[in-house]
Computed example of a mutant assay.
Amino acid sequence: MLEDDAAAQIAAVAFAGETLKHSPESLWKKGQWRVEVTNQQGALLFTVITLAVDAPVPGKLPRIASPASND
């Protein structure tokens, strides 16, 4: 058990960082990795969410159809 919520927040971020440091592929497999912190009764206090987002390749953007003209 940690001292207070601030200590729990720091521990959650440190845990996420260490875990991703040793298993970075886990983030790319699902695109999201999270640490949920609860109190002793099981109520959710906060969540640390890490996202991985691929950027589109320049020149390879999807084509978007233009709306039909009524003119």
Rank of each mutant, 00 (worst) to 15 (best):
A68D: 00
S23M: 02
A55H: 12
W33R: 00
P62Q: 06
N70S: 13
A16I: 07
A52I: 01
E36R: 13
E25C: 03
A7T: 04
T19N: 12
V48I: 15
W28K: 03
V37A: 15
V13F: 02
I10G: 08
E36L: 06
T47Q: 00
A7M: 05
G59M: 02
A65W: 01
D5W: 05
K21A: 13
E18T: 07
A6F: 00
A14Y: 07
A12V: 06
L27C: 11
G17M: 00
E18N: 14
S69E: 03
W28L: 05
N39G: 13
Q41V: 02
N70D: 14
Q32S: 12
E36F: 09
L2Q: 01
A68E: 04
A14L: 10
I10R: 14
E36G: 03
A68C: 04
G59W: 05
T50D: 02
E18A: 06
L51Y: 13
G31L: 09
D4A: 09
L61Y: 02
L2H: 04
V57E: 14
A16Q: 09
F46P: 10
A65L: 09
G31V: 06
A43M: 02
F15T: 04
N70R: 08
E25M: 05
E25D: 15
A11Y: 07
A12C: 05
V48R: 09
V35L: 14
A52S: 13
A55Y: 14
A8D: 04
S66H: 02
G59Y: 03
A16R: 06
T19I: 06
Q40E: 06
G59N: 08
T47S: 11
L45D: 08
V53C: 11
R34L: 11
S23L: 05
L44E: 04
S66F: 00
V57M: 11
Q41Y: 12
Q32L: 06
E25Y: 10
S26N: 00
S69W: 00
Q40P: 03
Q9S: 12
D5C: 08
M1H: 10
L27K: 08
Q32P: 08
V37G: 12
V13C: 03
D4Y: 03
V48K: 03
H22A: 13
R63N: 09
G31N: 08
